[in-house]
């Protein structure tokens, strides 16, 4: 009963929050609601008894990914509304709706067919973290390692992209200040 209520509360609020994320013209609202939605999604994991995944959802998505989004958003004026450019709203609506429909059909097909069964159900006495670790380092070892290598590659690429002029300090160099192309400045002129 309680779980039922909790599920519906979480479900409705997630939907509303993510709808705000998609619809809002304000960067700050979109970001805030996305972060709040991520927190509420972790609530689903707790409801299902997957404590570990819930906490990981909290730490990774709320703590890290969304914070990086926010960091990027700081380069805009977050308090101002954004003018969106809609080329063909009907087409966007159609394609988006179709995608959503396809996803719903794909994920609900096994439920309707009643073929859902847990491959690794929760076992009494073994903690959540242990179960995840067990699966991660036996059956899914290769995908796990591949994902790790992928992240490493992305990290190195990021360092190389960002670190090209790391030793060059703008404040201490004696050279003439470099004229940077700034589109905003040009527009204002």
């Amino acid at each position: 009963m309680y779980e039922m209520i909790a599920f519906y509360v979480f479900a409705v609020s997630t939907t509303i929050l993510f709808a705000i994320t998609a619809m809002s013209k304000n960067v700050l609202y979109a970001m805030t609601s996305l972060a709040a939605g991520m927190v509420i999604i972790s609530g689903f994991f707790f409801l299902l008894g997957a404590d570990f995944l819930g906490v990981v959802q909290l730490i990774v998505y709320v703590g890290a990914v969304m914070a990086l989004y926010a960091f990027a958003m700081m380069f805009f004026d977050a308090t101002r509304d954004i003018k969106e450019k809609h080329g063909n709203p009907a087409l966007v609506f159609l394609l988006g709706g179709l995608m959503a429909l396809i996803f719903v059909v794909i994920f609900s097909a096994p439920i309707i067919g009643e073929n859902v069964k847990a491959n690794y159900p929760i076992v009494e006495g073994i903690g959540n973290a242990q179960a995840v670790g067990m699966v991660l380092f036996t059956k899914y070892l290769v995908p796990f390692e591949v994902a790790a290598v992928m992240l490493l590659v992305a990290m190195i690429a990021g360092i190389i992209l960002a670190g090209k002029k790391m030793d060059h300090s703008l404040t201490t160099s004696d050279d003439e200040p470099v004229e940077y192309e700034d589109e905003l400045l040009k527009e204002n002129k």
Partner: peptide, 12 residues
């Protein structure tokens, strides 16, 4: 049963 991670996540 993941208390420490929960606290760290909440502080995050």
């Amino acid at each position: 049963n993941v208390g420490i991670l929960f606290v760290l996540g909440m502080m995050a």
